[in-house]
Simulated assay, not measured.
Amino acid sequence: MSVEAGRTPGQTHRTAYDEATHARLGADAATIIARYPQERSALLPMLHLVQSEDGYVSPRGIAFCASTLGLTTAEVSAVATFYTQYKRHPNGEYTVGVCINTLCAVMGGDAIWEHLSDHLGVGHDETTDDGAITLERVECNAACDYAPVVMVNWEFFDNQTPESAAALTDALRAGEQVAPTRGAASVCSFKQMSRVLAGFDDGRADEGVGAGGPTVAGTVLARDKGWQAPAFPVDGDSSAESAPVGGSHQPKVGAEQSSAERPATTAADSSPAAQQKKQASDEAKES
């Protein structure tokens, strides 16, 4: 059973930050705003900032962003309701996102979603009654090479099964430390991750594994085979070298170049204007 949307157990509704909190958020907001040539460009990270304070984009968070950036609350709300990472009702300690897009779905993502929904007793964007887990269907976690993938506060848990995903949520609800497959060495809270997304370093960027084997398999294969991109002429120079992927092989040019190695001819190359320019260039070279 999920908690009532817009409220967590024991929560009281507040319409403004107290003086100390307002001052602290104001200092953080000033740091964010200083990164941009126009103040209103700071809105997206500032929404993450207020979310790191309240656990969602609250009415007082919207009011704070609006007054700080000289916007209306309607303008701020329009942005906050457009992006799914901004929550309009209190979120759980951990957002568990199950990818149900094509590749993950056929690899078992749909089964994981159904199992977790039954296991936790909640549906999409609903929170368990203990406030620990908010479950989401995600349209691609951008990790297709590890399908099916589950994310916890946007940290990767790769090659999941219904059983492993349920065990993961059980560990989170029990307060146990869990380690993502890649990235940071542990999972932080939703509020802590929101502060990171606001642009504040948590000192964990170099933890854990970065790109795993499946992600770099193509690059490794290209280096082993000495493959590289075809040459692409610059300003009519047909002797331009290709960008190497690995090894020292250089492509053949001119008549020796195979059709597979020649740059593709674009529609712009075959236009009348382009042909006239090429003819004039050839005539100039001959003279």
Rank of each mutant, 00 (worst) to 15 (best):
V245T: 15
E176N: 13
L221Y: 07
G175P: 10
R195L: 12
Q250F: 05
G218Q: 09
E207L: 02
L221A: 12
A243K: 05
F200T: 10
P230Y: 00
S194R: 06
S186K: 13
S242R: 05
D235Q: 04
K225V: 04
A185W: 15
R195D: 00
A255K: 13
A165T: 02
A179N: 15
V234Y: 06
Q177F: 08
T215M: 15
G183V: 10
A174S: 12
V196G: 04
S189D: 06
D170W: 09
D170M: 10
G183D: 03
G199W: 03
G226P: 12
E241H: 08
D237A: 03
H249T: 00
G247W: 00
A185K: 14
P251M: 10
A255V: 10
F232G: 11
L168F: 05
L221D: 11
R182W: 11
G218I: 05
A179P: 03
A229G: 05
H249Q: 04
D201G: 09
D170K: 08
S248A: 14
V209N: 06
V187G: 03
D202M: 01
K225W: 05
V187K: 02
A217E: 15
A171F: 09
R204N: 03
R204I: 01
A198I: 03
E176T: 11
G212N: 12
A166K: 07
S186N: 11
G212A: 14
F232W: 11
K225Y: 02
A240D: 01
D202I: 11
D224C: 12
A205G: 11
A229Q: 11
K225E: 06
Q192L: 07
G212R: 11
C188N: 08
F200S: 11
S238M: 13
W227K: 01
P214N: 14
G236D: 01
K252Y: 04
L172K: 03
P251L: 12
K191S: 09
V196T: 04
A184I: 05
E176S: 14
T215V: 14
R182V: 11
A185S: 15
G210N: 02
G208F: 02
A166P: 13
A171G: 08
A174I: 10
R195A: 04
V234H: 06
V234I: 12
V220S: 01
L168Y: 04
D206R: 09
R173D: 08
A165K: 03
V187D: 02
V216Q: 03
S194D: 08
A185G: 14
S194H: 06
R204W: 03
T181V: 11
G246H: 00
F200K: 04
G183P: 07
G175F: 08
R204M: 05
E207R: 07
S242P: 06
C188Y: 10
G199F: 01
P244N: 01
G175Y: 05
